[in-house]
Amino acid sequence: MPLILCHSPKGGAGTSFVAAHLAMALAEAGHGATAIDMTRQDSLKLYFGLKPISEIPDLEAPENQGLTIGGVSLRQGWRATHAPAFADALDNGELPFSGGTFVVADIASDDAALRDQLLPHASLMVVPVSPTALGLAALTQVIPGTPLIDLDYTAFIINRLDETRRFARNAHSFLRELLGGKLIGSIHEDESVNEAAAMAKLLPAHAPASGALADIRTLAKTIAQVCAPPQAEEDAA
């Protein structure tokens, strides 16, 4: 069960969007996928066509009380992952996730403690980066104590890229050189993402030709290749 952490050191980088649509793209590709909102904001659900008032099942709720949208089992994990029992379970090597599916965790930018708790259990950490000055400056804070270029198990995605913007275009080229293979792709700026959330619709239903949707689907294929569940690898063989 590959655990994929989505976390950016800079708020507003589009981490929830990446987490939600990564999970949906993995599900579309035939993988089992669970998306867990581990933020207090509780906004991941908006990318699943839900409204702010909608409640999604707690991470510890029974399986028969689950909610599946777009092929993704959706869970709210902020309460459970911030309970003392969660840290104890991790210390004992017990992950409260099960099955041979991808688990995509949306972690708030200021919740480095939770990120650090989960990182040893993760197959990959996906870091969305805004192609802005502040977005690039925040790269110094991805994992304190380890130079960015030396981070393993970490993949970067440029999010909300608008190549008509001078700095964004330059930042894209700079990050490509700086990060090498760790930069696994980019997602183009696309207002239909915002519109879909505002209309409480799934992006594939609202804008099937969305450029951002095409981008995240491509990225999901890359990520699935990188950290496919063992069973999937056997099936592929």
Binding site: L119, S123, L124, P144, D152, Y153, V226
Partner: peptide, 14 residues
């Protein structure tokens, strides 16, 4: 800084 799990090591070669 937390290190990746051995399982992750097997899964992901950077």
């Amino acid at each position: 800084a937390p290190a990746p799990s051995p399982a992750a090591t097997a899964t992901l070669a950077a």
